[in-house]
Structure formats: structure tokens, C-alpha cells
């Protein structure tokens, strides 16, 4: 048994130490909001925060995490109250299929923590997640709206 600090809780798992964090979250801890898209850190669907840094969990062996704090999409809202990013996402009606949106929201949350008033260029640099439905226009709009909220 190994312990991970996820969303403020100490959670046990028994995965092989080299298993990517993504699959430990999804298959051992039932946190399926973090998505598998490519497995090679290209698409960003698996983005979580590790000590506040947006990180692609498909390329993070679980034994490298130690006791650092992991936050997943499930850990953003507290007692059902959405964060300002999540609220902006709902207000702008951003998701289409929604599959990439956990990663988008996690990346945007980290961006706003680092740069509370991001420019379009900041958004371009930070939001490298792939969306195939093409929600990019609404993603940009929601980030700007959240920055003003």
C-alpha cells in the first residue's frame, strides 16, 4: 500500500510504483474526471495540479509524486460550490463533448493563479490542451471573464 495526497485526503493505492499517476487516479481511486487522451503528454486531457503546478499526469510515475499535493478536477469545487473558473465555464457554455474540459479547467486554474489578468498571448502559451470539438473561442472568453470576476 502506498499513500497519495489527493484533494486534501490521504488515499491508499496498491498500483505498481511505475504506473502513471493518471491510471492510479482513474483505476485505483475512482477519480475518472482526469482523462486519458494520448498518454504522451501532448493533449492535456490528464492535467492535474501537483503542488499547484499544472502537470500532465499520464507521464508522471506514481512513485515520483511522494507526498506532494495533488488536486484533480474533482477537488476544485468545495461543497458543491464551483470555483470562479468553473462558474465562468458554465456561464460561457464552454464544453461541447466535454472530454478535454477537465484538463482545460485545470490548466486555466493554474494560469489564473500565476497570472490573474492573463493576456491573449498568456492564454495561447498556457492553454496547449487539444480540443477537437473546437471550444477554443469559448475557452478564451471564459478565462477572460473569470479574470474579471
Amino acid at each position: 500500500m502506498a499513500v497519495l495526497n489527493v484533494n486534501g485526503k490521504a488515499l491508499n493505492h496498491n498500483a505498481d510504483p511505475r504506473t502513471p499517476l493518471l491510471w492510479v487516479l482513474r483505476e485505483q481511486l475512482a477519480l475518472t474526471g482526469t482523462k486519458y487522451g494520448c498518454g504522451i503528454a501532448q493533449c492535456g486531457a490528464c492535467t492535474v495540479h501537483i503542488d499547484g503546478v499544472a502537470t500532465r499526469s499520464c507521464q508522471v510515475p506514481v512513485n515520483s509524486v511522494g507526498n506532494r499535493k495533488i488536486v484533480t478536477i474533482e477537488g476544485l469545487a468545495t461543497n458543491g460550490t464551483l470555483t470562479k473558473i468553473q462558474k465562468a465555464w458554465v456561464e460561457a457554455d464552454v464544453p461541447q463533448c466535454g472530454y478535454c474540459q477537465s484538463g482545460m479547467v485545470m490548466a486555466a486554474t493554474a494560469l489564473l493563479a500565476a497570472k490573474p489578468k492573463p493576456t491573449d498571448a498568456d492564454i495561447d502559451a498556457a492553454m496547449t490542451n487539444i480540443c477537437r470539438c473546437g471550444t477554443y473561442q469559448q475557452v478564451r472568453e471564459a478565462i477572460h471573464a473569470a479574470a474579471k470576476a
Binding site: 482513474r26 475512482a30 477519480l31 475518472t32 474526471g33 482526469t34 482523462k35 486519458y36 484533480t72 478536477i73 474533482e74 476544485l76 469545487a77 464551483l82 468553473q86 465555464w89 458554465v90 457554455d93 464552454v94 464544453p95 466535454g98 472530454y99 474540459q101 477537465s102 479547467v105
Partner: peptide, 21 residues
């Protein structure tokens, strides 16, 4: 009107086939 299927998609609750268990 806004979509009927948004909130679960921004909180990680939405279940897709790959999440089914």
C-alpha cells in the same frame, strides 16, 4: 439557451464510456 449537459463536464462528474465501471 444554455446546454443541458454542462455542469458535470466542468466538475469531472460526467461519465463517458471509458469511465464506466
Amino acid at each position: 439557451l444554455k446546454r443541458l449537459d454542462t455542469v458535470d463536464k466542468v466538475t469531472g462528474k460526467q461519465i463517458y464510456g471509458i469511465d464506466f465501471t
